[in-house]
Amino acid sequence: MIENYSVPSSVAEAAQLLQQGDATIVAGGTDLTPQTEAGARTFASHLVNIQRIEEMRGISTSDGRFRIGGLTTVTEILESKILAEEIPVLVEAADHFASPQIRNAATLAGNLCNASPAGDMCIPLLLLDAEVELASWVDGSVAIRSVPLAEFFTGPGKTVLQAGELLVAVEFRQPAKGFTASFQKSGPRPALEISTVSMGLAAVLQDGLLTGVRIAIGAVAPTPLRATATESTLEGRALDENMISSAVQSVQQEVSPIDDVRASAWYRKHLTGVYIRRALSHVAGN
């Protein structure tokens, strides 16, 4: 049960509060509230509302790197002009995210820390080789460690985030010239849909050959998945029907989906095949 409530206004203040232990962090609350209401999660004794930490907001670029503050809402990503121009795949994923009301409240850090295998923002960030910046209070000051997003997730709802740590920001390098990426998501409804399968694919197509292939898939494994085996089988190959067929085969072997109320493993594998075909056609078309 909640006994204390704090509203820190800086990362340093938040890190100190979290260091005391037994805390639940709340930002947009769009995952936390339904989970606690349903009894799937319980509040720690200390509820720390990080919404007023201004330094954790906003999208910026410098030295060829993008930085998105953890408290940036999905709506802010959706409406970002710079992202629309430079990283449209992030905006596409934001557009598929839940509903306008939820997008207005949900934060990027929240979506990542919730660690749903179906988390929509995880997929494009995996394509971008993003890193997450984790802050904690060590020896009287804020300590930061960076973790590649691909190593951040450890299982459904589980991450490497340790007690006392706060996801402050996400960073990634400006993609190489010619980088093309796409995001696809399935479910019976266009809105308010948790993915049956989501897939992102990014690559650079030069002289008919694919390089820098990145494939990320949601809801087919315990964590959002980087399909590295398939990536390497495609790397440097000519984009033709042969290659697409082998991509379909490879990716369907690489995923390990489950049967649940939303879909069967068969259907998730089937969709994975459909989506990689579409994604590669999309790259070919660009």
Partner: peptide, 28 residues
Amino acid sequence: ALSEELLIQDGKVLNPNFRDYKVPTAPE
């Protein structure tokens, strides 16, 4: 026609929430 079903297995309701019980929304 397309999306709604209260899934009941061995007498227990598997999807007692709006996330997994799919009512049509405005876009469709």
